[in-house]
Design a protein around this nucleic acid. Structure first.
Lengths: 233, 233, 233, 233
DNA sequence: GATGAATGAGTGTTCATTCAT
DNA sequence: AATGAATGAACACTCATTCAT
């Protein structure tokens, strides 16, 4: 008993079910991410990807213009997820918001270790691209926090310093933690690690009221007597 | 009495110019680093490298077993330099030593921006290797600081916390700064940046004596109501 | 009811021309045999092969995994033909069967002189392989004759001796003739040569009833007084 | 106390001991034979040869013009030995002489299995050469036997047939045995095998006085009614 | 829409040979 | 005579991309 739509698939089926195209794309993307993460960009073989998916070679090229394109889409997908995972929760105290975002960030990569690989790969492979997606993302995204931190300084809760420095401090720390976690075997709990990390960042390493406080680093950068050699490079 | 070196040759004299081999190796390495940094590992073309050097193709293979081997040697070279650049200066106060090391680190990569590329490339290309050279270096190298930080804590100059956390905090921050510097156009002065960076790390972001001090982050990690399960993807 | 093959394709039709793949494979094989025979394995250049065929380089690799693989396939092809050419004709007297097989063998290589080259090449190039294809073929194939010769002995038509010796005598003679024919300029008629060859093998070289018959060789192998030098080997 | 010849070796020693050059040549040749036999011509690596010998790369080229030249010399060396091993013993009955020569042939290759490899390699590699050394050797060498066999026929001890056929029969059988021995695991005693082999060759396979004697093969070659099919290749 | 056979540019690597010392 | 650093021609193999069916 043919359905009404049966006739039109007589010898070539144009989208039998709605959303099939979207699902195909997502399927390809998922497999591609796995392969890229595992093999690296150059070593990843599209033949293996299609073998995994079980489709023909040409099919991938219906959805993505090229291997590069596919890779970019994969990275974008990762970033989209990261943006979602670090979206500030409304209605919370700013510092709580920050803690949530940091936790979200750590949890995101803890759940998808292969995404860390993608981040590295992107930079390694697309040297021509002006700026890696991750840093583009970070630059854009971090603006969300500028106002927050500025306000906290005005309220006297944060020390006064260029707001960029605050944002970068958090961003850099997170980026470093990302890879340290990835390469070490330990898989710390994201929430706990977010707490420890923010504890250091907010309160600093020095003992409170100690002799060094506000002393040593303040001296830094004053005189630099040592010769720098050929500055250039 | 013949010259000391006369005896070792039975009746023939190869007698290559002394140090020629070492210089060749260094020359190849330098050119290779430049090319890898600029093109990436996979895209780097050995034909171009030899064209630059002005030697035959086989020559490279006299000094390095393969392209991989050449790349590894390049990374090792970078690490050797980094170790040298961050060697703790004797006779300084520990925190001054730290400041010197951080400055050395930043200055090293400020002078050789292409080395940052190498670091990324290594991770991207040699996914089979258990641990990237940089992290192997860092793990080994950071032990040098364990004793120092432990003592500072005992003396009450640093807050008491697991020493690993301190070391990682510095390492992660540096690693993050490395890439942020690299991808942003700004090229801050290493000594100044070391100072700012340590200021944040040592003193923290919070205003001294403020309401938040030792409060917010402490609360972190207490309750984690959300289910962690392995959420799927 | 759709055509029988309609069901197997969901909604797309690759539908390659039937037999195209097989013909391609055969075409490549034929050209490869010619090239290998003419140039030898190591010197044979796949670029020239594809130039002859008129296809792209990758095409060969769709059908054969490597140059080695291609060569092996070429030798196998030769052996397949040889097996066919020497298949015993049913219903003939055993000695007539033998004559037919020998003729078939000689005719096969007389028609395809380049196949002799392949046989030599295989041995020369694949020293790691336990046993050359030709000898593997011969070992297997010669079993077909064991029963025949055994019966002939039992019937008193052949002299009693280990059946292996008979089979080997024929096989060795044929192998020798193969190369002698190949390297000398004469191209004797296969049927005539088979007759001459079997005449010698069956009747022997000695004059009938002569003084030497069953005498000289019988003495062989009795005492071996001469020193063998270092036996080793 | 310097010898009179001491002065001339002041800084380069031209042939300190007489015969050193010859010994060097022989040494290189011996190592080369081993390597060629083991690896094949194309795969044999001169670097390994010199490593084995313990001399410099250039040295080989002082003694042999090229790799080809070295290989040819190696084969010639093998043939020289074979000629020696099969030299007819004077004062023996011709059939005894033959038996001795055959035994010598088999013993030679039994002692030096790798020489068999060389024979194959020569043919495989030097396809341009008109005639392989082995067959050139055989052609020349076999003339030694023409007179002998002719005389035996005249004396009625051998059946009358073209003398070439006799010589070839022996030569082909030997060549075949050579490889059969080489590829099978059995290592028969040369003298015994020579006896068995000559027994078959001289007395034939047929039972004496049997029905088949002088019958079957005689009919061979008469009419060849069978169609040859597509003659070409 | 889907397929997979065909393509060919691109490149790492080998190794016989040369020659300055 | 001997050495071994340098050379560069040669070649198998890969894989992203295309397109006829």
């Amino acid at each position: 008993m043919p359905t009404p739509r049966a006739a039109k698939q007589s010898h070539a089926a144009p989208a039998p079910r709605e959303g099939l195209v979207e699902r195909r794309r997502a399927q390809i993307l998922a497999h591609a991410i796995r392969h890229f993460a595992k093999e690296g960009f150059a070593s990843a073989n599209l033949d293996q990807v299609i073998a995994d998916i079980g489709c023909g070679k040409g099919t991938i090229y219906r959805y993505f213009k090229s291997k590069d394109d596919l890779f970019r889409a994969a990275v974008d997908e990762v970033m989209r997820g990261l943006l979602e995972a670090t979206a500030p929760a409304a209605g919370l105290d700013p510092l709580e918001q920050l803690r949530e975002a940091v936790t979200g960030y750590l949890r995101y990569f803890a759940r998808h270790p292969e995404y860390v690989e993608l981040l590295m790969l992107e930079r390694a492979e697309f040297r021509t691209r002006e700026e890696p997606t991750y840093f583009a993302y970070r630059r854009t995204h971090s603006r969300r926090w500028d106002a927050t931190f500025t306000r906290l300084m005005r309220e006297g809760r944060l020390r006064r310093m260029p707001v960029r420095r605050v944002v970068d401090a958090v961003g850099n720390m997170l980026y470093g933690v990302l890879f340290t976690n990835h390469f070490s075997r330990v898989r710390p709990d994201p929430a706990r690690q977010a707490g420890e990390l923010l504890d250091v960042l907010l309160n600093g390493l020095l003992a409170p009221g100690g002799q060094d406080a506000r002393a040593i680093p303040a001296g830094v950068g004053r005189a630099r007597p040592r010769a720098q050699g050929r500055r250039g490079t």
